[in-house]
Design a protein around this nucleic acid. Structure first.
Lengths: 139, 139
DNA sequence: TTCTAGTTTAGAATTATTATAAACTAAATA
DNA sequence: TATTTAGTTTATAATAATTCTAAACTAGAA
């Protein structure tokens, strides 16, 4: 379960996302952030993981709400794909993806692996929030 | 309605997508390709346009099927976004997009406006099909 | 300890998409 | 040209992802 050290971090993330630290939300944090590698997921896969391996039952609605709040707060990043399903990533650093249309798998590309030498100005009155490259690959 | 000149082109596009040229499919072609500017759309918006302004009634299922066949054949391109809805583009040349999360609008970026000076090798056994940049903008 | 505003939940509602099967039609063949 | 058949269209049903709802519950302030 959640070790004390991470607990503080989770509470901080939750509070700064305007969420109270509840049993369910801490369980979600555990499955999202208590990892060595970064984690790509959909709400469906996260829900399965939590409810098969977790120590607390968490409803789908709570998972949706928490993931959305974390995404707004910047602790998760929504990935661009052409599927009608949302993919999220715990790696919020600027980085890019390979998207394999056969297997529908996403793989991180480290930001240092792609360099842009020219980027356009945003339209008037707007600023750039984020820039992502998706490289579609096939056999 | 469809002028004679375009008709031939539409029939060619349909045949090479393994579709017979029917009244309904020609009407879809008219709304997709008889344009000066490139066209961004979802099936929903295309359906509205056709059935409000078109001269032939076309069912939603036919629109879905035709758009999918054109996308497979390469006459339309599916755009990457974070929404749970498919966006398509009649501009199939290599190009990129601004995505305004406020208004949910997509704007083309001409391929010459972005230059990449470093791109990673694809994983073993795979090749790069396509590379797209999406720049998310906000106020 | 009590109270209040926020939270969780199951299930209903909504939205996008895909599947189905009966009626229709393009175009190959006689 | 008439007939045939394989492909097409359509309304509607089914499915999948997400959002909404309202009743029961709980964190944390007073």
């Amino acid at each position: 379960m959640i070790i004390n050290n991470n607990l503080k971090m989770y509470v901080k993330k939750l509070r700064s996302s305007n969420l109270r630290p509840t049993k369910q939300r801490l369980e979600i944090c555990h499955f999202l952030f208590d990892r060595k590698k970064t984690f790509h997921f959909t709400v469906e896969t996260l829900n399965k993981k939590i409810n098969m391996n977790g120590s607390t039952k968490v409803s789908l609605a709570t998972i949706y709400n928490t993931v959305e709040a974390f995404t707004k707060a910047g602790y998760l990043k929504e990935i661009l794909t052409s599927k009608n399903k949302s993919f999220y990533d715990t790696n919020i650093k600027s980085h890019h993806h390979f998207y394999d249309e056969g297997s529908k798998e996403l793989t991180d590309i480290h930001y240092s692996q792609i360099k842009l030498s020219k980027v356009p100005m945003p339209p008037k009155g707007k600023k750039i929030k984020n820039l992502e490259v998706v490289i579609r690959i096939q056999k």
